[in-house]
Amino acid sequence: MITNFNFRVVWEYMPLFMQGLRNTFLISLVSLILALAVGIIACGCRLSRWKLLRGLAIAYIESIRSTPLLVQIYFFYFGLPTLGLRVPELETGIIALMLNSGAYIAEIVRAGITSVSSGQIEAGISSGLSYFQRMRFIILPQALGVTVPPLLGQAIVLVKDSALLSLISVMELTRCGQELTSERFMPAEGFLTVAVLYLCIYYCLKPLAGWAQKKLIFREAY
C-alpha cells in the first residue's frame, strides 16, 4: 500500500496544501477570537441577574450543544439566503464556527468563574478591595488556571471542526484533499496528506495545552 503512494503528485500539489493549511489556520484563528467574544458575552448573560438574559443565554448554549455542527453550518448555509441575505461561504462558515465554539467557551468560562469559591470573594470584599481589584487580584488569577487549559482544548476542537467547512466548498485543508480526489482520483495521496498536516497542527497545540495546565494549575494551587 505504501509502494503505490505517489509522492510526486503530493509534491506537485504541495502549494495547494500549504494554501489550505494557511486558510485552515486563519479560519480557526479568526473564529476562535470571535468565539471568545461571543462566549464571554454569553457567559455574562448566563450569570446575569435578569431572568430574560439568563434564559436567552441558556437557550443559546443548550441548543448549540445539543445539535451537530454540520446541521448548524447547513442551517446558516441554506437558511441565510431564504432570509434574503447573500453571505459568501467563507463568512457563513465562520459565523457557524463562531456561534458553535462560543457556546462551549461560555461554559468553560462559567466553570472558571464559579470555581472561585464565594469565601474568596467575601474575603476580598472585607479586605476593602474594589470590584476591579477583586477581579484582578483574586478571581481572575484563580479562574484562569481552570479556564486556559480547556480553552486550548477547544482551540484544537475548532481546528478540527473547521474541516466541515469543506462541505460548503470553503477552500481549506480538507477541501484540498477532495480536490486531489476529484481531479486525479487519488484519495490516498489527498486525504492521508491532509491527515498528516492536521496531526502537525495537533502536535503543536497539544504540548501547549499540557504546558498551560502545569503552569497555571500550579499557580492556582500554591
Binding site: 480538507t174 484533499g177 491527515a195 492536521y198
Partner: peptide, 23 residues
C-alpha cells in the same frame, strides 16, 4: 488515540470510505 484525536472526523471517514477500497 492521538491520531484519532488529532484529525477531523470528516477526514477519517473519507479515509475509510475512499482509501480502504484501494487497500
Amino acid at each position: 488515540v492521538d491520531v484519532m484525536r488529532g484529525t477531523p472526523f470528516v477526514v477519517q471517514i473519507f479515509i475509510v470510505f475512499f482509501i480502504l477500497p484501494e487497500w
